[in-house]
Amino acid sequence: MTTVDTPAAARPRPVSATPPTGPRVRQRQRPEPFTVASYVGVIAFAVVCIVPFWMVVAGSFTAESTLSKTGYSFWPDPFSLDAYSTIFAGSRVWLSYGATIFITVVGTVIAVIATSGIAWVIARGLPLVSRPLAVFAYIPMLFTGGLVPMYILVTQVLQLRDSWFAVILPMAIAPFLVFVQVSFFRATPQEILDAARIDGAGELRIFFQVVLPLSKPVIAVIALFYAVAFWNEWFHALLFISEPAKYPLQLVLQNLITSVANAADLGTVSAAPVYQMRLAMTVITIGPILLAYPFAQRYFVKGLTLGATKG
């Protein structure tokens, strides 16, 4: 995957350095100004991407007295664990962690099953079925009913108010990921399928015992995309979950933004370090994603690449 630039860079300069008695070999490697500017640009953007995370982590360990004056800090001084001890002493954080984990795990399982199933039927290329089904899955990308009908559907028709399934089900199918998976499934070697068919395997057996084991990489990709989406989901929670004991992490965090007074609910102490707690709660919320990221990152890149180049 790396690039076009390696061969070009390794190539001895054909034009600019025609005299073979040129400077030493090392100097030939001297990067052009454009390359230098690119390094500077990328490094600068990377720093900008990281700094907010660092500020919040550092701030969450900084004593409330400093924090309430500056609002941020680059180094925790004076160091303090007050926020974390207050948060973890209360029960709310555990409840909301439970809610988020339930939504993420159950949601991802449902989403992966549904997405893989329809993607395989589309990828099979059956006449009269696959193409209409693809259009059927594509239309929701172009046209949606919007907020109000969804609200009426979930609260009035399905009666899912205050249920975590009100958060899970509306986002259990992402058409984009269906098509990522279709483009992967299309590459399944036909011979293997034919062999299984000759051995008398039915569609379900072929799918579960032949196709899925061959598709672990793409399953990992779509599972991770769904998991992040469910972990970060708060819009449907905001709409449908009004019972504080059922709030997922993101909703607890949102309540902390709208009013610092809500921070007091999190712990047991009355004089809670509210600003510090807001930052600590942020760290608690993004922690699992940041810890998993280094291991999962290549799958996300792979998924986007699959989707963008259509296999």
Binding site: I110, I113, A114, T115, S116, G117, I118, W120, V121, R124, L126, V129, L133, F136, A137, I139, P140, F143, T144, G145, G146, V148, P149, M150, I152, L153, L158, L169, P170, A172, I173, V178, G202, E203, L204, R205, I206, F207
Partner: peptide, 30 residues
């Protein structure tokens, strides 16, 4: 049994899309 298999595979997604994507579209009569 083969037919049944494909229906089973597509069904969860079809149901979810019908209810949560196409349902609200119809609900726009509101």
């Amino acid at each position: 049994s083969r037919d049944y298999g494909l229906v089973v595979l597509a069904a969860p997604a079809v149901i979810l899309l019908v209810v949560f994507a196409y349902g609200p579209m119809a609900g726009l009569v509101v």
